[in-house]
Design a binder for these strands. Structure first.
Length: 744
DNA sequence: AACTGTAAACTTTTT
DNA sequence: GTTTACAGTT
């Protein structure tokens, strides 16, 4: 597995050379998949340095830590070969960069530089508390949906004041109130969420001339990768840094924009020419990665998107193997077909680390994992975030967070009684009240706890002991002794795991999952130790364990799934299509090409979302260098229910001279063990069907087409013409009576 | 206060 | 099929 194409060795195309040698002024590189984008970016950075730009004046922003790491390594390699060095060069993710800015200047905008970064679960707790604080019913106001509104506001640079000013209806006004309460909670806890990292940095650039000057002066050259996936707030940050020198280079591909749902604003890349009207534009259309049939298939698919600039994608590589589309009976068979292909290709000498299986939703990984395990094929699931979401890890991290940020009440509440130490819900509520009235953090409020205030003797003792332990950790984390001690971060983490009682708590039972939790805690300690070894710091200014802990917690908060992809591993990678962006493999399998899965059901009725699904599929296809296998099933079990499926429209769109279609199961060959229920029989004239909205009706007429068959159904409420594919009609036994109250 | 079992909701994708 | 929330029991 590799990022970027090395295949082209040292010869660059004219277009690539133009991009590499461009120095000053805005530059837009429109880089199709496999067009040597990473090569161009790395060589361009190296070229800037070779031409005398000090490395520390260059800022390169990527999407994942893994991409940043890879880019940094490749730049350093190029520099090494030229006898140059890149010390001080900043290659970072957008979020990590903003976190660093706020570590330096955060006191000017959020009142602290020692903030905690809240993850999704922490955000949910804060949002719940905010909803409660507004006296709103949290069954009507779901934390998740409220948060998504707040998040998309923040991604558009809309702060609380603006939001409330613009709120006109009851709904928006209520959300505005929750937004404000949520912000108050975060500020009170010295915490930021993911979106705050961007929003607060952008605001800082607006409001604080000194910060703006400092950043503008330092970063004379700005480079942004995956520009099609940046949101408006990110644009504002970049624009403000580059405003004066205008040395901004953005690289991206509108056809690979797959994060609109997360606030990515495709107009950032589409309007770049207008924003920077003297921009040089370099299109890279030649694909160096994939063989001819694969490129042709991808090109064919993406042409179905209407909202796009036509861009030719071509290759001069040989045609190679045809992509195979394979239809299987169920997901077990699908997984088996994929492992079979993996084994076959391994026999041909393809390395396992050069193979990947991609899917639309994480839930699909389970069956695939089973198949890989039974076949004994090494595999890695790219799910970097999952580890840190485990309860025992979250608990350990909460202890660590409280250590560096005593105001973090969300962390406090999570661990004050884990492991159980006799402090129940009532005591915690009372403590919360107490903290509120005194304007203290919950941890600090413990000093005000007493029997006179209505706490039980047991809880008072427990709480005081808890506070003392936390305090001791803080003191030791700052101590001079451990300041220079090697392994101090890992030691600190280990100590907290032990002294918090977590270790003992999970050692008590011999239960299998407790054993696993213990192992995970061990793994957290090794992760800390690994982090410690890797981190770079100025020699004259070694960090205290507490500082190290800050960086570690920040690192942990900003990992992405794709970061878990280990190029050294001799294993097949399993991951979502989203996580696969920017990667490439010799062999790629994409599972679940079915209507409702890819494209996902939530995109079926929205053209814009449908186009994003198509781009996602396009991204998947273009990850493959030589071998591509696309699979689907006739029936799939989801949420414990087995359902019939329909082949993805994308298959139809791709099929043609460049792909090879196979049906492993004949359409009528449905296994006897699982006889068809009435619902699975075909709808014909006279069939009685049920529609979600219109109720039960009788089919009067069917017009069959390869695409978009229509049915005319006589419902009680009238005659309707429906597109069979979309209507999701449920077939009922022929003699069912029709009518509004008819029950199957 | 702590633990146990059952009901309900739930998954798109993620920094 | 999995996770979370809540009610009921000790």
């Amino acid at each position: 597995m590799n990022m970027g194409t090395d295949a082209q060795a040292n010869t660059l195309t004219t277009a690539q050379i133009e991009a590499v040698e461009h120095m000053n002024g805005p530059l837009l590189v429109l880089a199709g998949p496999g067009s040597g984008k990473t090569t161009v970016v790395t060589k361009r950075i190296a070229n800037l340095i070779a031409k005398g730009v000090p490395p520390w004046q260059i800022l390169a922003l990527t999407f994942t830590n893994k991409a940043a790491k890879e880019m940094r390594e490749r730049v350093f390699n190029v520099l090494d070969s030229q006898g140059l060095h890149g010390r001080g060069l900043t290659v970072s993710t957008f979020h990590a960069f903003c976190a660093r800015v706020l570590r330096d200047w955060g006191d000017r905008i959020i009142g602290t530089t020692t903030f905690t970064i809240y993850d999704t679960a922490d955000q949910r707790s804060a949002a719940k508390a905010a909803i409660r604080a507004c006296n709103l019913n949290d069954s009507n106001w779901k934390p998740a949906s409220v948060l998504s509104v707040i998040s998309s506001a923040k991604n558009k640079l809309i702060d609380v004041d603006t939001f409330q000013n613009e709120a006109s209806d009851f709904y928006a006004k209520s959300i505005g109130k929750i937004y404000r309460a949520y912000e108050n909670i975060l500020r009170g806890n010295d915490a930021v969420d993911f979106d705050d990292l961007l929003l607060k940095t952008a605001q800082l650039l607006f409001r604080d001339e000194e910060v703006k000057q400092s950043l503008q002066d330092r970063y004379q050259y700005l480079m942004i990768d995956e520009y099609q996936d940046t949101n408006h707030t990110q644009f504002v940050i970049a624009d403000n840094i580059a405003k004066n020198h205008r040395n901004i280079c953005v690289v991206g591909d509108p056809d690979q924009s797959v994060y609109a749902w997360r606030g990515a604003d495709i107009s950032n890349i589409l309007d770049f020419e207008e924003q920077y009207n003297d921009a040089t534009i370099v299109p890279l259309g030649r694909n160096f990665r994939s063989t001819g049939h694969i490129v042709a298939t991808a090109a064919k698919l993406i042409e179905y998107n209407s909202q796009r600039k036509d861009k030719k994608l071509y290759t001069e590589l040989e045609d190679g193997h045809m992509p195979t589309i394979l239809s299987l009976e169920g997901e077990r068979e699908e997984a088996e077909a994929i492992t079979n292909e993996v084994l076959r290709l391994r026999g041909e000498g393809v390395l396992l680390k050069e193979m990947a299986v991609l899917y639309r939703v994480n839930a699909l990984s389970r069956v695939l994992e089973d198949a890989f395990r039974t076949e004994g094929i090494p595999y890695v699931v790219a799910r970097g975030t999952a580890f840190y979401a485990r309860q025992e890890i979250k608990q350990a991290l909460s202890y660590l967070r409280l250590l560096v940020n005593p105001k973090d009440d969300v962390a406090f509440i999570r661990i004050i009684n884990t492991p159980t130490r006799g402090i129940g819900a009532t005591s915690i509520n009372k403590l919360e009240q107490l903290a509120q009235t005194y304007g203290l953090s919950m941890l600090d409020a413990i000093s005000e706890v007493s029997k006179e205030r209505g706490f039980t003797a047991r809880s008072v003792t427990s709480m005081k002991k808890f506070a003392t332990t936390c305090h001791q950790w803080q003191v030791d984390g700052r101590s001079e002794e451990s300041l220079t001690a090697a392994g101090s971060l890992a030691d600190l983490v280990e100590r907290v795991v032990r002294e918090s009682g977590l270790e003992q708590f999970y050692s008590k039972n011999a239960a299998e999952d407790d054993l696993e939790r213990l192992e995970n805690l061990e793994e957290l300690i090794s992760a800390a130790s690994e982090f410690e070894e890797r981190i770079e710091f100025e020699e004259d200014n070694p960090p205290t364990p507490l500082h190290m802990l800050f960086s570690f917690l920040e690192h942990v908060a900003l990992v992405s799934d794709a970061d878990a992809v280990d190029p050294e591993n001799g294993a097949v990678t399993l991951m979502t299509l989203h996580a696969a962006k920017g990667l490439e493999f010799d062999f790629v399998a994409i599972a679940g090409l079915e209507e409702g899965l890819l494209p996902h059901e939530r995109s079926l009725f929205d053209d814009t979302q449908m186009e994003e699904e198509r781009r996602l599929c396009y991204v998947g296809i273009t990850r493959a260098r030589k071998h591509l296998l696309l699979t689907n099933t006739r029936r799939r079990t989801q949420r414990g229910m087995s359902n019939r499926t329909m082949g993805s429209r994308f298959i139809r769109e791709m099929s043609g001279t460049s792909v090879h279609e196979e049906v492993a199961i004949e359409p009528w060959d449905i296994p006897d063990a699982d006889p068809p229920s009435p619902c699975e029989q075909e709808i014909t004239t006279g069939s009685v069907v049920r529609h979600k909205r219109f109720g039960v009706g009788k089919v009067q007429r069917i017009i069959r087409r390869t695409r978009g068959s229509t049915v005319t159904v006589h419902f009680d409420g009238g005659v309707k013409h429906l597109v069979l594919e979309y209507a999701k009609l449920e077939l009922l036994p022929p003699n069912t009576s029709t009518g509004p109250n008819a029950i199957y």
